[in-house]
């Protein structure tokens, strides 16, 4: 029992640290890659290659003044950033980083909570994040923030449908709702290669995840030219930083979900088991998982510095008129495929 408790605590610490670390360095990567794309260097002054930049930013943000706009609702205003970061962190709990370790005769899977309904949990908590944005936008007592919050609600509702349908397609294939189960079920064939249904579902999920994380080209929630920063216009200091952190943790979660649902999680066609030593194999699996996740993170950033923002009506049209029908067709096709034994 103690082993399990200790392992659970260790895993919690590891995953929170991992999420924050990835988020912090994702901000650095964001700026570095932006620099490279624009033929610049990006931040390179703090530490070697600018590696300490996130710390410097953090310290700076800590020492900034915390502003509370007049007429803001103080409670909700302070609650909102915590909601965003908190919900993003909760979602980290179901990321299956790798296979199970066997310690003292107990099997310890490399996921904080290997729940049978992991996917449902994930959808539930990641949708909570929109409350933070909505509340932050509303409680700021600022029309731009409010508009940002509204857009966020509408956008997340629209794209979550597509996302859930794409996910459901995967569930049809794997027959389990546990994230670890899904990852393990793809050991033979990654879902993305279940052509065409899996592939289409993958792309649908991917596109929807841009909207879900409010990233360009779908970042109408922040949209500096129109909304001066949207829901976080009025935020400063660590409250602002929490929004920021939440966004990047959410990105990390989405990237790991893409990996888990479609790219086989920690598996790599059996290669993840080449070592004789199970511990090494588990570590290798985790590395493979992270490599895939980082690839998606990179694409998030790469897309951001390439594509322009779409218009609001285009966003809605895309979501409702293209992606949603496509997702419905996909799930029907997927269901048919499973019933008729094609997959």
């Amino acid at each position: 029992m103690t082993v399990l408790v200790v392992a659970a605590l260790l895993k919690v610490a590891l995953f929170i640290g991992l999420a924050f670390g990835v988020a912090a360095y994702a901000t650095l990567a964001e700026r570095k890659i932006a620099g490279w794309i624009q033929n610049r260097y990006g931040p390179n002054r703090v530490g070697p290659w600018g590696l300490l930049q996130p710390m410097a930013d953090g310290i700076k943000l800590f020492f900034k003044e915390e502003l509370l706009p007049t007429g803001a609702n103080p409670f909700l205003f302070k609650l909102a950033p915590a909601l965003v970061t908190g919900s993003a962190l909760l979602a980290v709990a179901v990321i299956p980083l790798g296979d199970a370790l066997t310690v003292a005769g107990k099997k310890i899977p490399l996921v904080v909570a290997d729940m049978p309904v992991g996917i449902l949990y994930l959808m539930a908590v990641s949708s909570l994040g929109v409350y933070g944005i909505l509340l932050g936008g509303w409680s700021s007592n600022n029309k731009y923030s409010l508009l940002g919050g509204l857009r966020s609600a509408a956008q997340v509702v629209s794209y979550e449908l597509t996302m859930v349908l794409a996910m459901a397609t995967v569930l049809l294939f794997s027959g389990t709702m546990s994230t670890r189960g899904i990852a393990l079920a793809q050991e033979g064939l990654w879902n993305v290669f279940r052509f065409p249904v899996g592939t289409v579902a993958f792309f649908l999920f991917w596109i929807a995840s841009f909207a879900e994380t409010n990233r360009l080209p779908f970042d109408l929630v922040e949209c500096e030219p129109e909304l001066v920063g949207g829901y976080h216009t009025e935020y400063s200091s660590m409250r602002f930083a929490l929004f920021f952190l939440g966004e990047y943790v959410a990105m990390f979660v989405q990237a790991s979900m893409l990996t888990t649902l479609f790219l086989g999680g920690h598996t790599l066609f059996g290669l993840e088991r080449i070592f004789g030593n199970p511990v090494l194999n588990v570590l290798l699996g985790a590395a493979i998982f992270l490599a895939k996740t980082f690839f998606f993170l990179f694409v998030f950033i790469w897309v951001r510095w390439t594509l322009p923002r779409v218009r609001w009506d285009q966003l809605m049209a895309l979501g409702w008129k293209v992606l949603l029908p496509l997702a419905m067709v996909t799930i029907l096709a997927g269901g048919g495929g499973v019933i008729w034994g094609i997959y």
């Binding site: 890659i33 490279w36 794309i37 624009q38 033929n39 610049r40 260097y41 390179n44 510095w305 390439t306």
Partner: peptide, 13 residues
């Protein structure tokens, strides 16, 4: 943009 990433830097340090 991918190509641009590997082009020489413009900036003078």
């Amino acid at each position: 943009t991918l190509r641009e990433m590997f082009r020489p830097r413009f900036t003078i340090q």
